[in-house]
Amino acid sequence: MGMSERDVERVLTRYFQEGDRSEETTLLADPQLDVDMNIVDHILEKPEAHDEDYIVFRHFTDPATTILDIGANFGYSATGFWRVGAKSSIAAFEPIKGFEPILAELGRRVNARASRGWWARLRHRPKYEHYRTGISDRDDELTFHTSVINGRIQSALTTADTNPHIPSYVKNTFDYARNYLGAVETFKIHPFTSPVTTVDNWMASGVSKLNLHRIVAVKIDTEGFEGHVLVGASKLLDRQKPLIIAECGHVIDLATKTAFSHGYVFAEREGDQLRVSDRPTQRVNGFFIHPEKFSAYRQMGLLRD
Rank of each mutant, 00 (worst) to 15 (best):
M1T: 09
M3A: 02
S4Y: 05
E5A: 15
E5C: 03
R6K: 04
Y15N: 02
Q17N: 14
E18H: 14
G19K: 07
D20C: 05
S22E: 12
E23C: 06
E24W: 10
L27E: 12
L28G: 10
P31Q: 07
Q32P: 03
Q32S: 08
D34A: 02
V35G: 10
N38L: 15
H42D: 14
L44D: 05
L44C: 12
L44F: 04
P47K: 03
P47W: 04
E52L: 09
E52S: 14
E52M: 10
D53S: 13
Y54P: 00
Y54I: 09
F60H: 08
D62I: 04
A64D: 15
T65M: 05
T66V: 08
T66Y: 06
I70C: 05
A72R: 07
G75H: 10
T79C: 12
G80C: 02
F81A: 00
K87F: 00
K87I: 00
A91R: 01
F93E: 13
F93Y: 12
G98R: 02
F99D: 10
E100D: 14
P101D: 06
G107H: 00
R109Q: 14
R109G: 09
N111M: 03
G117H: 11
W118D: 08
R121F: 12
R121S: 12
R121Y: 11
L122R: 15
Y128T: 11
Y128D: 08
E129D: 13
H130C: 11
H130D: 04
I135S: 13
I135L: 11
S136I: 00
E141D: 09
F144I: 07
T146Y: 05
G151Q: 06
I153Y: 10
S155Q: 07
A160Y: 00
N163F: 06
H165M: 06
Y169C: 09
V170D: 13
N172Q: 14
T173H: 07
T173M: 09
F174E: 02
F174M: 04
Y176W: 15
L181H: 05
G182A: 12
A183D: 15
F187Y: 12
K188L: 15
F192G: 04
P195S: 11
D200W: 10
N201D: 06
M203C: 09
S208T: 11
N211R: 05
H213P: 06
I215E: 04
V218T: 10
I220H: 08
E223F: 03
E226M: 01
H228Q: 15
V231F: 07
S234Y: 05
L236V: 11
K241W: 01
C248D: 15
G249H: 08
G249K: 01
I252S: 04
I252T: 04
L254N: 13
G263R: 14
Y264T: 05
E268M: 15
E270N: 15
Q273L: 07
L274D: 00
L274R: 01
R275Q: 09
V276C: 12
D278L: 10
H290G: 14
K293V: 01
K293E: 05
K293G: 05
F294L: 12
S295A: 14
A296L: 09
Q299A: 03
